[in-house]
Simulated scan of single mutants.
Amino acid sequence: MRGRPSPFSPRGATRGFTMIEVLVALAIIAVALAASIRAVGTMASNAAELHRRLLAGWSADNALAQLRLAHAWPAIGEQRFDCSQGNVQLVCTQRVSTTPNPVFRRVEVSVSTPGESGVLAQMVTVVANETSRSL
Rank of each mutant, 00 (worst) to 15 (best):
V88T: 14
P5C: 04
M123E: 10
P7Y: 01
Q79F: 07
S134G: 14
N62K: 02
A39L: 10
N62Y: 00
A75C: 00
A48D: 12
A56H: 05
F104D: 03
Q66Y: 14
E130H: 10
G16W: 04
A65N: 14
A70L: 02
V24G: 06
T93N: 14
L120Q: 10
L120T: 11
L67M: 11
E116I: 06
S112F: 09
V91C: 00
G77D: 01
Q122W: 02
V31F: 11
I37L: 14
A65G: 04
V111N: 05
L33M: 14
D61H: 13
A65Q: 15
F104K: 01
L54W: 07
T14S: 14
P74H: 08
R11T: 11
R80P: 00
A48I: 04
E49F: 10
R68P: 01
P5R: 11
Q66E: 15
A65H: 11
E21A: 08
Q89T: 15
A25Y: 04
R80N: 13
P7I: 04
A32F: 08
D61C: 00
S117G: 11
P7K: 05
D82H: 07
L23F: 05
S45A: 15
R52T: 09
S6R: 07
T125I: 04
T113H: 11
T113Q: 15
L50H: 15
V127D: 03
V109L: 06
V107A: 12
V40D: 12
A13T: 08
D82Q: 12
S97H: 09
N101M: 09
S84V: 01
T18R: 12
T93R: 15
M1E: 13
M43I: 01
S6G: 10
E130K: 09
L90V: 09
A30S: 15
A34K: 01
A72T: 15
S132W: 10
I37Q: 14
I29F: 13
P114A: 06
M19D: 04
R95P: 00
A13Q: 13
G16T: 02
L120M: 06
L90N: 07
V109G: 09
S9I: 00
Q94P: 04
L90M: 07
A13K: 11
V127C: 02
V22S: 02
C92F: 03
V126A: 13
R11C: 03
V22E: 01
C92E: 03
S6M: 05
P10F: 02
L135C: 02
A27F: 04
L23E: 03
A44E: 13
V111T: 10
I76H: 07
P100R: 13
L67R: 10
V31R: 10
V96A: 06
A48M: 12
C92D: 09
G16F: 04
I76T: 13
S59V: 03
A27G: 15
W58K: 05
S6L: 03
G86H: 06
Q85C: 01
A63I: 08
T125K: 10
R80M: 03
L67G: 06
D61E: 15
A72I: 12
G118P: 11
T125F: 06
S45K: 06
V96I: 12
G77N: 02
Q122F: 00
R105L: 00
P74C: 01
T18S: 15
A32Q: 08
A25V: 04
A44R: 13
